[in-house]
């Protein structure tokens, strides 16, 4: 049987934060993720990497919430990069124009490096 266990791990580094999710990203879990991101923004973070390598499923509400996180960051002139996307999720991000406002990278290292590139 498949299980939708969900977990969020945070890693705060000098100048950026990495949020790693695990499991199905639906509405309530998306809200948990948004809350995590907002808390980090209140602490002054404006550069984020969201690592979705362990998230193979996402629904439309999860996508909406990711867009809202991007909007919040845009207000703060922040940057968000995604990494570890499945081909389906990457395609979905491009389709709903989410990829126009956030970077998509194959792995965490390249996503972090791009946060600081001009």
């Amino acid at each position: 049987m498949l299980s939708g266990k969900f977990d969020v791990q945070i890693r705060e580094e000098d100048g950026y934060a990495v949020i790693q999710t695990e499991g199905y990203l639906n509405g309530p879990r998306g809200e948990d993720l948004a809350e995590t991101a907002k808390n980090l923004m209140q602490k002054g973070h404006t550069k984020f990497v969201i690592n979705l390598a362990e998230t193979k499923l996402i629904n439309s509400i999860g996508i909406s919430i990711l867009i809202e996180i991007i909007e919040l960051l845009e207000e703060r002139q922040g940057i968000l990069n995604f990494c570890g996307l499945t081909p389906t999720i990457e395609h979905t991000f491009k389709l709903v124009a989410l990829a126009r406002h956030a970077g998509i990278f194959p792995d965490e290292d390249s996503a972090i490096a791009a946060l600081n590139s001009p």
Partner: peptide, 14 residues
């Protein structure tokens, strides 16, 4: 519209 696009894409991609 975004949700519908998502669903249609999911339908075809799946």
């Amino acid at each position: 519209s975004r949700a519908e696009r998502f669903r249609l894409f999911m339908l075809s991609d799946t």
